[in-house]
């Protein structure tokens, strides 16, 4: 299970594409075989000459007509492959894909403050963490975490240590997709007035998930740590997400 999700969320959409593409092919095969079965059901008695029956011919292999089967199979494959454009049109379009990266200036964000920016239509939390917050996050043993994986697109598959949740040299900046991994609400904790939950990080009011100062799930129904998008620092205070 953990393996299945480790490339999420970005890679998952790629897998979905592949899956849907295969779906068209499978439907083609299904339809074709279905039609072949029908092709064998042909009844060929001339009503002029006598009665006709629908089922008597099924058992007789001589009735199977390769031409009819081939024609049915061909038309079914064509009809099925036409499904793909109708499915694929709902995937993100070329314009949406092109907006995949965005740059932000972090200079105005003071220690202890956080900002929320938009990336791909999603909120991204960027917190300038205090030394205490970093310390608190580092102290937690990975084995005690509900989700032991870092969920970091920059370092996929690594354990959820605080170092793996940030970029080397920029540990004070925590950059995460601000969407609760439970059912997609936006957790509280970005402003001073917000409840930050039992672990001083974020708290999702929808179903009570508590995240710590490294954005890791500690308590509540959320299955995963908050996702970390791909990002790089262009300078000390300039960041590109995506």
């Amino acid at each position: 299970m953990a393996n299945l999700w480790q490339f999420a969320p970005l890679k998952f959409s790629t897998r979905l594409h592949a899956f849907l593409r295969n779906l068209g092919l499978k439907a083609a095969v299904l339809l074709a075989t279905g039609n072949m079965a029908c092709g064998t059901l042909l009844f060929d008695d001339d009503p002029l000459e006598g009665g006709r029956s629908m089922t008597a011919d099924v058992e007789d292999p001589n009735r199977r007509d390769i031409l009819v089967v081939a024609a049915s199979a061909f038309s079914a494959v064509g009809a099925a492959s036409l499904i793909w454009p109708f499915v694929h049109q709902m995937n993100p379009d070329a314009g949406a894909q092109a907006l995949a990266s965005a740059e932000f200036d972090l200079a105005p964000v003071q220690v202890g403050q956080a900002i929320t920016v938009m990336w791909r239509g999603k909120p991204v939390f960027i917190r300038h963490r205090t030394a205490e917050e970093i310390e608190a996050a580092k102290k937690v043993p990975v084995e005690d975490l509900p989700d032991p994986l870092s969920r970091n697109d920059n370092e996929p598959g690594t354990p959820a240590t605080d170092a793996n949740r940030t970029l080397e040299g920029h540990e004070k900046w925590l950059v995460m997709v601000g969407i609760c991994t439970h059912l997609g609400c936006i957790p509280k904790g970005q402003t001073l007035a917000d409840s930050k939950g039992d672990f001083g990080g974020w708290f999702c009011p929808c179903h009570g998930s508590h995240y710590d100062t490294a954005g890791r799930i500690r308590k509540g129904p959320a299955p995963r740590n908050l996702d970390i998008p791909p990002y790089t620092f262009l300078s000390d205070t300039k960041i590109r997400i995506g």
Binding site: L42, V68, G78
Partner: peptide
Amino acid sequence: LYLIITTLLLYFAKKRIWSRVK
């Protein structure tokens, strides 16, 4: 290419089916 092949196949299949009746 696909449509022409399939149409021809269907045409001959149709002829085969109709050859069973006058």
